[in-house]
Write a protein that binds this DNA or RNA. Structure first.
Length: 593
RNA sequence: GGCGCUGUAGCUCAAUUGGUUAGAGUACCGGACUGUCGAUCCGGUGGUUGCGGGUUCGAGUCCCGUCAGCGUCGCCA
């Protein structure tokens, strides 16, 4: 037997027993006469002692042992000498006195060790992921991830959801994100696409009568990465029949309550708060606002319209918006140079023309390089509407609605973090609902589905489809946790006529729609029940529940920003013969431009 | 594709802002040590400063290009 116990479970109750442990050498402390070894596995650490009372064979075998060697020790559990307990580890009251020690495997000098104080650079961690995954924080995260997924599955099963696997090899649908394509050998020149989500399959499952479907589904999108976005990610994909938005939201409310209780021991009051997309954009400039702190956007357009300040007035006159936020005690963190930096950010990242700002002085008056353009009354009105207090920093964006939303969202996010306006331990759950059906693509002068083309409009907005599609709102809902979109879903169109109309608005005529989604359109005509669903980003939920800042730390084998796997070195070039079988020839990078 | 940050010993970092032979901690190697738990003490090995070019009497430091990692905008139905 290679082990009788793990390295985390021995305690005073085991004193006197002879046990066998196997694990990795976390550290060796050599005292000449004897050695202490911290033996580690994923359950914990146990101190192993070799001293002159141990057999000579054990002394010989331990001689070459170094960090991360895999060893097996047989020994007696003994109480530590008085005053030698280590309260930092669960096994700290005992130690193992070695009778026999075997090296099960050696280890090259590792580039880094799991208990290292300073984390190595991320590329090194990714290259030697097997070492990185030995680190306690990574193990904790993967255990948490496993628990979260189990809780989700338990909840789903308790609510009669059926777990169904859908294909990984599917059909390319050029709407939306770029597809990862897989060439077909049997059908040279044709390609499968990896699923961006099992969207259509789960709708078909509803039509097939499996009224509650769930899947822990891997999804693939060939788009550029972010701290919270991987090209390959996992979502909890769900779909329900005979439901409206409230039913789906209620179902997820219950799941979040269970997760919060099971994982974080937080009692989450239900229902989770909701706000419409319009409200979110007006108050926070974003469709996934972080509600852990205030600092809401204040509209100043009417004041701007009557000032002598040309920058403001011209924006107001043009029908655009002058809006701002007030950073509480913002002057403490943002000097003139800090403000310059924020200005650069709104200009370069969000396309704003500039950033107007005021310092709130001790007497409550506003001071700024632009203050001379305003009357005292106007300044007082701005200060009052902003709810400004001495020490605050008021930031104002005068621009189009879209730019002001983006820039103020960016500013709010940044000052929230830098001024520490919220407790990072706090968890905030909410819903954003009634998203617009369509966004207008100015360049192509056409409508684009905001969610996806199978999203049902609000019943009362059906008329807008004919008259003013931009006004039509969708039966859509996003779950927002701490300012991140943790999931999103919609009620789907189950009426073929409505579906055709939406396709029409998206510039797909009947023929094109049939060509791309014919199977779904056909299926919808064979008794499709009203249905809808949601997909939760599991990686993101893990990230948020574990208070982590990037999604790579929640995934065992993540990709880099350039979508490569540094450990396996994927993607890689393949043999010409492989390509030939697939009927594929690779053009040099420069040849296509 | 744009913008930004980073790249110096196996690892984490420093190098007085262009000036002598590029340092420290840790790891590694050798030695000492019977109670440590980030053990301690003594000694030692270890560097094409990511790569390529340029400016200069002189480049880790400045410039151009390039590669890689990260952040962000575009993008992500």
């Amino acid at each position: 037997m290679l082990r009788t116990h793990t390295c985390g479970e021995l305690n005073k109750d085991h004193i006197g027993q002879t046990v066998t442990l196997s694990g990795w050498v976390d550290r060796v402390r050599d005292h000449g006469g004897g050695k202490f070894i911290d033996l580690r596995d994923r359950y914990g650490k146990t101190q192993v002692v070799i001293d002159p009372d141990s057999p000579q064979s054990a002394m010989d075998n331990v001689q070459p042992v170094r960090n991360e060697y895999v060893i097996q020790v047989i020994g007696k559990v003994i109480q530590r000498p008085a005053g030698q307990d280590n309260p930092k580890i669960s096994t700290g009251e005992i130690e193992l006195h070695v009778q026999e020690l075997q090296v099960l495997n050696v280890c090259k000098t590792p580039p880094f060790v799991p208990n290292q104080k300073d984390l190595p650079n991320e590329d090194l961690r990714l290259k030697h992921r097997y070492l990185d995954l030995r680190r306690q924080p990574m193990q904790d995260t993967l255990v948490l991830r496993s628990k979260i997924i189990k809780a989700m599955r338990d909840y789903s099963e308790a609510n009669d959801f059926i777990d169904v696997e859908t294909p990984i090899l599917g059909r390319s649908t050029p709407e939306g994100a770029r597809d990862y394509l897989v060439p077909s050998r049997v059908h040279n020149g044709s390609f499968y696409a990896l699923p961006q989500s099992p969207q259509i399959y789960k709708q078909i499952m509803m039509i097939a009568g499996y009224d509650r479907y769930v899947q822990v589904a891997r999804c693939f999108r060939d788009e550029d990465l972010r701290a919270d976005r991987q090209p390959e990610f996992t979502q909890l994909d769900m779909e329900m029949s005979f439901v409206d938005s409230d039913d789906v939201i209620g179902m997820i409310d219950g799941m979040m309550q269970k997760l919060a209780k099971d994982i974080l021991n937080i009692d989450l009051p239900l229902p989770l708060p909701r706000m419409t997309w319009d409200e979110a954009m007006t108050r926070f400039g974003h469709d996934a606002p972080d509600l852990r702190f205030g600092v809401e956007i204040v509209d100043l357009t009417d004041i701007a319209a009557k000032t002598e300040f040309r920058v403001f007035r011209s924006v107001a006159d043009a029908g655009n918006h002058v809006r701002g936020i007030c950073a509480p005690n913002g002057q403490s963190k943002f000097s003139r140079r800090g403000i310059d930096e924020l200005t650069k950010m709104v200009q370069e990242d969000f396309g704003a023309k500039g950033l107007a700002w005021f310092r709130v002085e001790d007497d409550g008056k506003l001071n700024s390089t632009i203050a001379k353009n305003f009357t005292a009354e106007e300044l007082a009105e701005i200060a009052s509407r902003m709810g400004a207090n001495p020490g605050d920093l008021i930031m104002i964006i005068a621009d189009t609605w879209e730019v002001s939303c983006k820039a103020l969202y960016g500013l709010r996010k940044r000052i929230g973090a830098e001024l520490e306006l919220f407790d990072p331990q706090e968890m905030n759950f909410s819903w954003v609902t009634e998203f617009p059906m369509f966004e207008h693509d100015a360049e192509a002068d056409r409508w684009i589905a905001m969610h996806h083309p199978f999203t049902a409009p609000l019943v009362e907005d059906l008329g807008h489809l004919d008259t003013d599609p931009g006004k039509a709102r969708a039966q859509a809902y996003d779950l927002v946790i701490n300012g991140y979109e943790a999931g999103g879903g919609t009620i789907r169109i189950h009426d073929n006529k409505v579906q055709q109309k939406v396709f029409g608005l998206l510039g797909l005529d009947a023929e094109a729609a049939q060509e791309r989604f014919g199977f779904l359109l056909d299926a919808l005509q064979y008794g499709a029940p009203p249905h809808g669903g949601i997909a939760l980003g599991i990686d993101r939920v893990v990230m948020l529940f574990n208070n982590l800042e990037n999604i790579r730390d929640c995934i065992a084998f993540p990709k880099t920003q350039k979508a490569t796997d540094l450990m396996m070195e994927a993607p890689n070039l393949v043999e010409t013969l492989q390509l030939k079988e697939l009927g594929i020839e690779v053009l040099g990078k420069d040849e296509d431009e």
